[in-house]
């Protein structure tokens, strides 16, 4: 395959950034999208040009590191697929492909296609956990978790934290991420003790980080490589509502 790539190049966070066109030949249709970028980078290095920086690691769709907007869509045209699992057979010979980083104020561009997603970590640090000190746990089977709850928790926990939801949202809202993270723990009996505190803290950290608001477009769900459902946002709203009322009535935010 021969392709024309319009790639966003940006030297660093302060740089303005611009699209630059490249052409790349001899791409195998069996190779993955990132392997196609490897090929381009090898060609650039051979010419002594700086290769395109992009984030990637496991290349099997689970680490959540890869983060490209391809032809306007986070993670490209295939549903339920990360960029690393996107294969060139999804494109035609001669195609022009536009490749950009995630764009959202809380995800500043580091270089070219690489963005800084540490705001996600900050959200988890503020409350996305169950406090269970090492060594303090009881026998695992003493906590019964109904299968349906375990399945729901697992559906939510499948989130890989890639940030596609934010990238696809017109408002750069992180609600789907936060909702998935909160729902995973809030659904389980182990997570009940900290449930209210968790949602209040996570939502307020999310707001402080500068993410936009959820206006229920549903684009996040459409691009999510793990198909996290919008229902978890409804659950987050519900849990947040209850927690806020309780906090208001008790005069405490803990």
């Amino acid at each position: 395959m021969k392709l024309t790539l319009k790639i966003w190049r940006q030297a660093n966070t302060e740089d303005q950034g611009r699209f630059i066109s490249y052409s790349v030949d001899d791409v195998s249709s069996d190779s993955s999208f990132l392997e196609m970028l490897d090929l381009l980078n090898e060609q650039l290095v051979a010419k002594g040009e700086e290769p395109v920086a992009f984030d990637h690691d496991c290349r099997e769709g689970i680490c959540g590191m890869c983060s490209l907007r391809i032809n306007g869509l986070a993670h490209g045209p295939e549903r339920a697929t990360t960029v690393c699992q996107l294969h060139m057979r999804s494109f035609q010979d001669g195609d022009t492909i536009t490749i950009e980083p995630w764009r959202a104020a809380p995800f500043p561009v580091v270089k070219d296609l690489v963005v800084d997603r540490s705001s996600f970590d900050a959200i988890i640090q503020s409350g996305g956990f169950i406090t269970a000190r090492t060594g303090s746990a009881q026998d695992a089977n003493s906590i019964l978790v109904p299968k349906c709850d375990a399945d729901t928790a697992m559906d939510a926990a499948a989130c890989i934290g890639c940030g596609a939801c934010v990238a696809a949202c017109k408002n750069a809202s992180a609600m789907l991420f936060v909702a998935a993270k909160a729902a995973h723990l809030n659904t389980l009996p182990q997570g009940q003790a900290e449930k209210d505190r968790r949602v209040l803290k996570m939502v307020s950290t999310m707001d402080e980080a500068g993410f936009g608001n959820c206006t229920n477009y549903g684009e996040c769900e459409a691009v999510c490589p793990k198909e996290i459902s919008l229902d978890f946002i409804a659950k987050l709203n519900r849990d947040y509502g209850k927690a806020s009322i309780k906090a208001f009535l008790s005069g405490s935010d803990e």
């Binding site: 869509l73 950009e100 764009r103 477009y217 684009e219 459409a222």
Partner: peptide, 8 residues
């Protein structure tokens, strides 16, 4: 850049 919509 370009931004496409899937299901909005």
């Amino acid at each position: 850049g370009v931004k496409e919509r899937v299901q909005a």
